[in-house]
Design a protein around this nucleic acid. Structure first.
Lengths: 107, 107
DNA sequence: ACTTACCGTAAGTGAATACTTACATACGGG
DNA sequence: CCCGTATGTAAGTATTCACTTACGGTAAGT
C-alpha cells in the first residue's frame, strides 16, 4: 500500500550526509567540527544539515557563536518504525513465496 | 564508528527505486509487471532492479521468457541490522546528551 | 524457421543535486 | 567599538544519476 513516502530515507541516501548523521550518533557536534571530519567545505556540511533537519532527523541548538547539532530521537524513531514495517513486509513476502517461488503472479 | 558504509541505504534513496522494492515486499513480480505499476519505462525498472540486486536487497530468477524478482531476505536482514545499530547509537547519544541539551547552565 | 514476447545493456540527454566561493549576520573577547 | 570566530545563505558550477530510445539476445508458440 506504498504510495510513496519520503519519510527521510532520501536524507540518508547520500554517503557524505549519512556519514554526518552517523557522526552525530556518537555525540552532538558543532558545524565546524563536523566539517573537519570530512573532505568537504563547511557550507556543504551546513546544507547537508539542513536536509537532515528538514527530514526531522537532527535538531540544532545555539551555543554562543557556535551551533550544535544532535540527532532528533523523535524523527529517528519515526523513520525506524517506517523501515521496520518495510523489513517485516519483505521477510513475510519471502516466507510466503518460499514454496510458490515457481509461479509468479502475472498482471 | 563510521567509516562510511554503502550497505544499501543508497539503494533506497530514490523514490522510484524504493517504490519498486516496496512492490516486491508484497509479492515477487516480473519486470514487465513492475514497469506497469510506475510511470517509468521498462528499461528504467531494469536499471533500478540492477541497483537493488547489487545491493543484495533483491534476487532474480528466470521463469520462461520472463524474469521474476523477489526480496532477498539475507540482504534485507543485513541492512536492517546495520540500520538498527545506527538507530541504537542515535538514541543512546540522545540520552547521553539529554541533560546538557535542555538548559545551558547560566554563567 | 519465423514470429512474438520479455528482458538486459548501450548510448545519449536532461534534470536533480552536491559542491565551491563569496557575502551577510550573530556572538563574544580585547 | 573593533575584531576574530562561527555560521547560514546566495549564486554559480560540475557531477551525478534517473530516464528515454535503440538494439541485441533468449525463450516459447505456431
Amino acid at each position: 500500500m506504498g504510495a510513496y513516502l519520503q519519510f527521510g530515507c532520501e536524507a540518508l541516501g547520500d554517503p557524505t550526509r549519512f556519514a554526518i548523521f552517523e557522526a552525530l550518533t556518537e555525540r552532538p557536534r558543532a558545524v565546524g567540527e563536523l566539517a573537519g571530519l570530512f573532505p568537504v567545505s563547511r557550507p556543504a556540511v551546513s546544507q547537508h544539515l539542513k536536509v537532515l533537519k528538514d527530514a526531522g532527523l537532527v535538531k540544532d541548538r545555539k551555543a554562543g557563536t557556535r551551533r550544535v547539532y544532535a540527532v532528533d530521537p523523535e524523527g529517528v524513531a519515526r523513520l525506524r518504525k517506517e523501515l521496520d514495517r518495510v523489513w517485516t513486509d519483505a521477510l513475510s513476502a519471502f516466507k510466503r513465496a518460499a514454496e510458490t517461488w515457481e509461479e509468479p503472479h502475472n498482471a
